[in-house]
Computed example of a mutant assay.
Amino acid sequence: MSADLKPLEKQVVVVTGASSGIGLTTARMAADRGARVVVAARSEEALRELTDEIRHSGGEATYVVADVRDRDDVREIAATARDAYGGFDTWVNVAGAFLYGKLEETPVEDMRDQFDTNVWGLLYGSLEATNLLKDRGGAIINVGSVASDRAIPLQGSYSASKHAVEGFTDALRMELEQDGAPVSVTLVKPASIDTPYPDHAKNHMDEAATLPPPVYAPETVARAILDAAENPQRDVYVGGGAKGMAALGHYAAGVLDTVMEKLFVPMQKDDEAPRRDAPNNLDESTGDLEERGGIDRHVSETSAYTEASQRRSLTGLALAGLGAVGLALYARSRSKRRGEKSGERETEGRRSVESVAQTRRKRG
């Protein structure tokens, strides 16, 4: 049985991890488009401010202070939606915990805590949503990552958690399809997104953390999520770079390994030293209604690839090719820029040497 999803303005949408980044952007956008929203996160102050903001703009919203690592908290989210609106139509699992560092230098306890949020929290949410939606119909939307398909060095634990998310999501989809349940199950796989992700991450590197390009705006993910809330979809890559990386990893894994090792390792390190005393969302709530991270590089506000894929106006092969071409062009431009910078440094060096030589000749 296929899912017959309602228009967004007739839906109740649950969003976890709604106090910052993708979750916050999705909740605001859903409310702007007429949905009633139930927002959940650990920060009550941020959630109260968000719901007041939505109500003052004419929308309907309620909040639940919840840590998705606690199954009883997740059950409370569903109970609140039932009490306030009679249930929900779409459940979006966004809440995530972030880690940077080589695997051998990252405490196993931190990895376990990350899995509690990224895997068990999402699993609890999905099962709670299934319990209601398998009878009334609706959508379960899980936010994975390009790291669901392709592991990223220095984010190995995060990658492992997102691989688990993909496996769970695919299995849940098949079981619901086999039961004939009118539920759409979608996995959203963003590329790097300009959210406070690096600032909120627990960092075990010797340098401050940053995001590898290409980087997209959080609105690109929110639009993809809300499209999937109205139109059943299996999975959605947000950003052509995400699809290109997944395709290259599938067809030329060794090549992508080399690209990762040579480019993605240094591109995740900033020049500054990390702030060891800064709060991180592994150990505490860090959501403060910040959608973006203020990255100082180009941020793509849209993704032609994602829009085309969700309109289903291109074949799967063409979409994979488009993503791969985008990644190749990016890698080429990155290499060219590095070459130009190297050339500039060499030219400046030659000029310095020539200047010193001229000075010495004049003195002689």
Score class of each variant (00 low, 15 high):
R351S: 09
P196D: 01
L289D: 02
A318W: 00
A246H: 13
P107K: 00
V215L: 13
M245P: 02
R223Y: 04
Y330G: 00
G339W: 15
K269Y: 12
P274M: 12
E344H: 13
D283E: 14
L289W: 02
L127G: 03
E105C: 00
R297E: 14
V13L: 13
A79F: 00
E346G: 00
V119L: 14
H204A: 05
L256H: 14
E261R: 07
P279W: 06
Y158S: 02
K6M: 08
G241K: 02
F168G: 04
M205N: 10
R42A: 10
V94C: 11
A78F: 08
K10V: 01
D32A: 12
T210K: 15
V64Q: 12
A129M: 08
A61M: 10
K243I: 03
H56S: 15
T106R: 03
T51N: 08
T359R: 15
H204M: 04
V255W: 09
E76F: 00
K162S: 03
G96D: 09
Y237R: 11
S20H: 06
L103I: 10
A30L: 06
T347F: 08
E105P: 02
E346L: 14
T302E: 13
S300L: 09
A308G: 01
E44Y: 00
A66E: 12
S313H: 02
V39I: 13
D288G: 04
V215Q: 05
I225W: 04
A27I: 14
H250A: 12
D110H: 09
M205A: 05
T26R: 04
D70E: 12
Y85S: 14
Q310E: 05
P218W: 03
S303A: 05
H298D: 10
E284T: 14
E261P: 01
S333P: 00
M267F: 09
V65K: 09
P279I: 06
R338T: 10
V92P: 05
S352A: 15
E354I: 03
R36Y: 11
Q358R: 14
Q310L: 15
A30D: 08
L133F: 00
S126Y: 04
G58S: 09
S303K: 01
N280G: 06
